[in-house]
């Protein structure tokens, strides 16, 4: 499964990043998500064309990634035990707004266990910890931008916001891309979960079509009988402008 080695010397691509479309993202200030009220800037962002600082970014090599890093069922297992929960494969492709694959980029995930409890010093929900589940994973996309994780379906859980708010089942995703200006953190939801429509965090995205892109469909073609279900989650990062007279290959 390990993809071929990444190019030793990543090349700096000078094509400018496309501007971010903030109307396609969640609204920073949303009173129904109470914590955002004191944490959203009130003044406008300073907009200008991206500079080399945003157009370059960290690269991570395969030497950093362990063989079980993308297997959350086994990467915190004590001995031969496995994590408790409904076994799922989560997979997809990272591309940019121009449709080009984003190869060799780091994808990190974190999630609650099957009971809806996080392994974090700050999580005090009374659902029990699973000794065999840590809740984090990471991988690099392959040559064509594909990634995959094996994990368990996370549980829904209540959280302090309004009197009785619950988070739908979700997996947090962190994606780097090839430029610091492409950096993105988001969440994947599961097709058919009725809590999505009740969640004030999901509802910070005002464009329903955009929110639907975070809802991964069940993919029985990529599930495995007597073993696991599969959910597909494709990710689109900011693109780079096509520049004329560019004498190097695009997409590096």
């Amino acid at each position: 499964m390990p993809p071929p080695d990444a190019p030793a010397e990543p090349q700096y691509d000078a094509a400018a990043l496309m501007p971010r479309r903030h109307d396609m993202h969640p609204r920073p200030y949303d009173p129904d998500y109470k914590t955002s009220v004191t944490r959203a800037p009130r003044l406008p962002l300073l907009s200008m064309q991206a500079t080399p600082t945003e157009e370059t970014g960290p690269r991570f090599g395969h030497d950093r990634i362990g063989p079980l890093d993308n297997d959350l069922i086994r990467n915190h297992a004590q001995g031969d035990a496995l994590a408790i929960g409904e076994r799922i494969r989560v997979f997809g492709r990272v591309i940019d707004e121009t449709g080009r694959a984003v190869p060799h980029t780091l994808v990190e995930i974190w999630q609650a266990n099957a009971g809806g409890r996080y392994r974090h010093i700050k999580d005090t929900y009374f659902a029990p910890l699973d000794p065999n589940f840590g809740g984090c994973g990471r991988t690099l996309t392959d040559e064509t931008g594909h990634y995959e994780f094996m994990t368990i379906r996370p549980g829904a859980y209540p959280w302090p916001n309004r009197a009785n708010d619950w988070r739908p089942m979700h997996i947090h995703f962190s994606i780097f891309g090839h430029a610091f200006g492409q950096r993105l953190i988001s969440q994947m939801y599961f097709q058919g979960d009725p809590l999505i429509d009740l969640c004030p965090i999901a509802a910070t995205i005002k464009d329903r079509g955009q929110l639907d892109r975070l809802v991964a469909p069940l993919d029985m073609q990529n599930a495995r009988g007597m073993d696991y279900l599969a959910y597909r989650f494709d990710i689109v990062l900011r693109g780079r402008r096509q520049t004329m007279f560019e004498n190097r290959p695009e997409g590096l």
Partner: peptide, 20 residues
């Protein structure tokens, strides 16, 4: 042209994934 995947908050447990 495609549209960028929308962001969602990193939440209180971001450290699990980023600074375990």
């Amino acid at each position: 042209r495609l549209i960028e995947t929308p962001s969602q908050t990193a939440g209180p447990y971001v450290h699990i994934g980023c600074i375990p």
